[in-house]
């Protein structure tokens, strides 16, 4: 199970990757949409965890670009919105049922990753 974490907060993705690795998930990270897309050229991932608000290319657009390259890939969105309600509509619009609000709970993230991959 290979996870790609994408968020412009480098400290966040590096620490999350370490925590997921301790839970048996192979996780790698990128801090921009550009870097994430370039990783897909050489590696394949089962699932990507994307921050919605990122410089230049946001998570929703990045999902479309990644999906064009890897149609089987699953996605989870992470948002800094105060409530998940306003984000929910946007997430459903781009066809994702999976979203989490920052700060994350690691057990919730692991559960969502497993749930998404079992679908």
């Amino acid at each position: 199970m290979k996870v790609l974490l994408v968020d412009d907060e480098k400290e966040l993705v590096t620490t999350l990757a370490e925590r997921l690795a301790l839970r048996g998930l192979e996780a790698q990270w990128a801090t921009s949409a550009e870097e994430a897309l370039s990783r897909l050229q050489t590696e394949s991932f089962d699932i990507a965890v994307l921050d919605v608000k990122m410089p230049k290319v946001d998570g929703l657009l990045l999902k479309k670009q990644m999906q064009a390259k890897c149609p089987a890939m699953k996605f989870i969105f992470v948002t800094g919105h105060g409530s998940s309600q306003d984000f929910e509509a946007g997430a459903l619009e781009v066809g994702s049922d999976y979203y989490l609000v920052k700060p994350l709970k690691i057990d919730d993230l692991v559960a969502k990753i497993k749930e998404a991959l079992q679908r």
């Binding site: 907060e9 400290e11 966040l12 620490t15 925590r19 608000k53 800094g80 920052k102 700060p103």
Partner: peptide, 20 residues
Amino acid sequence: SHDLKNVLAVINENAGLLED
């Protein structure tokens, strides 16, 4: 508030890693 959420998210993961 978005910026602050990010600060808290990073602190949260650092604390979580410490727990791990």
